[in-house]
Design a protein around this nucleic acid. Structure first.
Lengths: 102, 102
DNA sequence: GCCTTATTTGGTGAAATGGCCAAATAAATG
DNA sequence: CATTTATTTGGCCATTTCACCAAATAAGGC
């Protein structure tokens, strides 16, 4: 698969959707189950409008699903592979911390 | 694991290092084996100084290793789990494309 | 219908990002 | 040692990102 430009950008968008501390924290929380926006606002500790924008970005990338029930909107992960994903990330994360190399 | 702020940021940095089309393309190429900067410059099609900066960012996040041999610097992936990682990404990427939801 | 609660949208500003170019560095070669 | 080749560094500029705030929208309850 020669990976078209579009495909590459879609993939990058998914990854980017997880590549921010607040969004990663949200994703990790959602591994334990669905949450509404105000739950996530308390978790992350920024303005709710900011959380909402993060969630929109993640949803548009394909990472999240959402469902409205009553006054709340419940967000959940679109895929259960995030655990494996993060295991790979942790193997890389600052395991080296090689600031100099060449 | 309550995930300290530092840990969260380190993880996010790893993910962010892969969450850009050029950098993802580089990473995918490196799955096939090490490459020098000028190889990657041809692959990505941007200025070599730009590629170099991408590589530095990826290395500092922990995603890449590098080794100098002669005039060239060869970059390689720091971890072989990228295949699984991308499999997860592809399951998410625009599988839904849900622009509206709630 | 009016109030309250939950969420999104639009605007703004500061900071980060990603590209290019030119100059600096490092190693090999004549 | 001067030259060539590979790479990095620093500067600059346009764009994007991420935070906040205020205002708009949506649903439920009195």
């Amino acid at each position: 698969m020669p990976t078209t430009k579009k495909k590459l950008e879609d993939r990058a968008a998914v990854i980017k959707a997880l590549g921010h501390p607040s969004r990663l924290l949200i994703a990790q929380s959602l591994m334990k189950g669905e949450r509404c926006v105000c739950d996530l606002k308390d978790l992350v500790g920024v303005d709710m409008s900011t959380v909402s924008k993060h969630l929109t970005l993640m949803r548009e990338a394909g990472v999240l699903n959402c469902e409205k029930r009553g006054l709340n909107i419940y967000y959940s992960l679109a895929c259960d592979c995030l655990g494996d994903f993060l295991r790979c990330v942790d193997r890389l994360a600052c395991g080296g911390k090689k600031t100099t190399c060449c």
